[in-house]
């Protein structure tokens, strides 16, 4: 059941992205930025947490989940540290993902070569 929920919610979030690609002039980069910012806003209003509780990875894996994670991190940091928390909360929450992308990116660049298409 949890798999189905994750599949459907995650799939729907992606399908919306596809509609934006097909029917608007938005470039993929703009769509991704909108998704992250939307995630921060939804997370900030506390609207995204229920989706995560319902769909698990179906809500955390799409980039909106990344945005909600940033919001959650900054909220935690501000609660614990006061105002200076706005400078550390977001990146702290995103640390694992960003570091993983950078490190694996470097490894892949060392090991592989781009292939002709």
């Amino acid at each position: 059941m949890d798999f189905l929920k994750a599949f459907v919610i995650g799939g729907l979030i992606c399908a919306v992205g596809q509609l934006l690609i097909d029917y608007t002039k938005l470039t993929p980069a703009r769509i991704l930025v909108s998704y992250v910012v939307a995630g921060v806003i939804l997370g900030g209003f506390g609207l995204y947490q229920p989706v995560i509780e319902f769909a698990g990875a179906g809500a955390t894996v799409p980039l909106t989940g990344f945005g909600a994670l940033l919001a959650k991190g900054v909220r935690k940091a501000v609660t614990e540290l006061g105002l200076i928390g706005i400078f550390s909360g977001g990146l702290t929450a995103a640390a694992a993902g960003v570091t993983a992308a950078v490190v694996f990116g470097l490894i892949v660049a060392l090991v592989f070569k781009p292939k002709s298409k």
Partner: peptide, 8 residues
Amino acid sequence: FPLEYGSV
């Protein structure tokens, strides 16, 4: 884009 980028 880079060749391996999954652009549509």
